[in-house]
Nucleic acid binder design. Structure first.
Length: 428
DNA sequence: TCTGGGGTCCTAGGACCC
DNA sequence: TCTGGGGTCCTAGGACCC
């Protein structure tokens, strides 16, 4: 945790759409949308696509004709590409501030306290220009004494083109106009439910909310809402996080390309997810004490619906897929009912402890150490030769997985070949 | 028959984020 | 035909204990 008095947030504009443009400059100025997994819904839009009235979260099939008619470029999401470009953006930001909190794939908070630039607003413009030059990604920047205000400034900068992508609240005497130009639903930390509630009480803008009675806010919106209120008044409640905290739970789930009906197929998918999730678990050197599985039919389909989930407390903390698989199968067996068209399954790992803090116990199965050694080896091989170079038979043969997702409109994995990329300047 | 007060731990559910 | 995936935090209420 870092107490900072000056916080900037750098936010990539239309990140996924911008990523698609980096290696295909002919897309500049053209409308782009990017689809979620399974080509389900729209999760990113370029400005041109927004101007066509295409909404976030809109199912693809509903707007497919509109997109075609307007010659919108449509992409399946290409997370390998986005992840690589994100890393390059973050590396660039780290040359500008000693404290960078990577908040999401396309956003980072920067501690600007120690920055001795003569003109901090100019410095922000320089960051923006450099990121664009080095990575090809356009960003917007907001700066303020709290995270919530920085986000608000950032949004304002994005909306008002004349600001050239930057708003530094410190150079503005009175923020009232900016707060009153921000509807409550656009405040960071105020979602759909609370904004509806606030409007009911005639609280329509960030300024209204900032001036609302604190004990009322606390009562209606818990301490979380109170923090947002304080932050809007310039009182910092949410510190910068310097090192990413370890995950407290890990989920792996997916909707299928086709509906599944057979237990054996679901079992394959569950096994695959256990392998994926436990990999992440081991990466952060954790082991889990419980595991859950859920399955469900397609709630949008007019057919018999079924949802169920279950979890098991494990006899000892585990991190290898080999050990976890039987438990996941046991849960699936319990919750599976035949006669339904399943659309999605997922698994959850929970209740983590640090692996180094657990000792092998007298009651462990005799081959436990072998399992662990085998898992380490498997991780090493997969790290070297790529995901699923080696994988569990329980997850089914790669070629036969009916449950794999649909990604018909995928762009190339440009960044897999690093030679195509301009060199990123190393951090000093 | 009468039936206190305070603490902890756990879980489910609701809100939010990207 | 076709509607994403992966997280966090907070609170209320029940179980249990003394």
């Amino acid at each position: 945790m870092i107490k900072a008095k000056k916080i900037a947030i750098v936010d990539c504009n239309n990140f996924y759409a911008s990523c698609e443009r980096v290696f295909t400059p002919s897309l500049n100025g053209k409308a782009i949308v990017v689809l979620s997994n399974n080509d389900g819904v729209i999760i990113a839009r370029s400005e041109e696509a927004k101007a066509l009235g295409i909404k976030m979260g809109e199912p693809y099939f509903k707007v497919e004709r509109l997109l075609k008619a307007n010659k919108v470029n449509v992409f399946s999401s290409n997370y390998t590409l986005y992840g690589d470009l994100s890393a390059r953006v973050m590396q660039t930001l780290e040359t500008f501030s000693p404290e960078v909190e990577i908040y999401s794939i396309d956003e980072a908070f920067l501690n600007m306290d120690g920055i001795a630039a003569e003109n901090q607003t100019e410095y922000l413009h320089k960051i923006r220009k450099t990121v664009k030059q080095w990575t090809g990604i356009p960003v917007s920047i907001g700066m303020a004494p709290t995270k919530t205000l920085a986000k608000l400034a950032n949004r304002f900068a994005k909306k008002h083109k004349e600001r050239d992508g930057v708003l530094n609240l410190f150079e503005i005497d009175n923020w009232d106009d900016i707060l009153s130009a921000t509807p409550v639903e656009d405040i960071w930390g105020v979602g759909r439910q609370y904004s509806a509630m606030l409007h009911n009480y005639s609280i329509h803008t960030a300024l209204d909310f900032a001036r609302a009675d604190r004990s009322w806010v606390r009562k209606k919106m818990t301490v979380v809402g109170l923090r947002t209120n304080l932050e809007l008044n310039g009182i910092s409640c949410i510190d910068l996080e310097n090192s990413p905290p370890k995950k407290k739970s890990i989920v792996s789930s997916r909707s299928f390309g086709e509906y599944l009906t057979e237990y054996d197929e679901l079992k394959e998918a569950v096994s695959y997810f256990v392998a994926r999730a436990s990999e992440k678990l081991r990466k952060q050197d954790s082991s889990c004490n419980s595991i859950g599985v859920f399955i469900r039919t397609n709630p949008f389909k007019n057919s018999p619906q079924y949802y169920n989930s279950g979890d098991i407390r494990l006899p000892y903390p585990m991190s290898s897929a080999n050990e976890l698989l039987p438990y996941s199968h046991r849960i699936l067996q319990k919750i599976f009912k035949s006669g339904y068209y399943y659309q999605k399954v997922g698994i959850l790992l929970m209740d983590f402890v640090q692996t180094k803090n657990i000792s092998l116990s007298l009651f462990d199965p005799p081959n436990r150490l072998n399992q662990i050694v085998a898992t380490e080896l498997m991780d090493k091989i997969n790290k070297k030769y790529g995901r699923e170079a080696l994988y569990f038979a329980a997850a089914g043969m790669k070629e036969n997985r009916r449950w794999q997702m649909k990604r018909d409109l995928l762009s190339s994995h440009f960044t897999t070949n690093w030679k195509q990329l301009p060199e990123v300047k190393a951090k000093e």
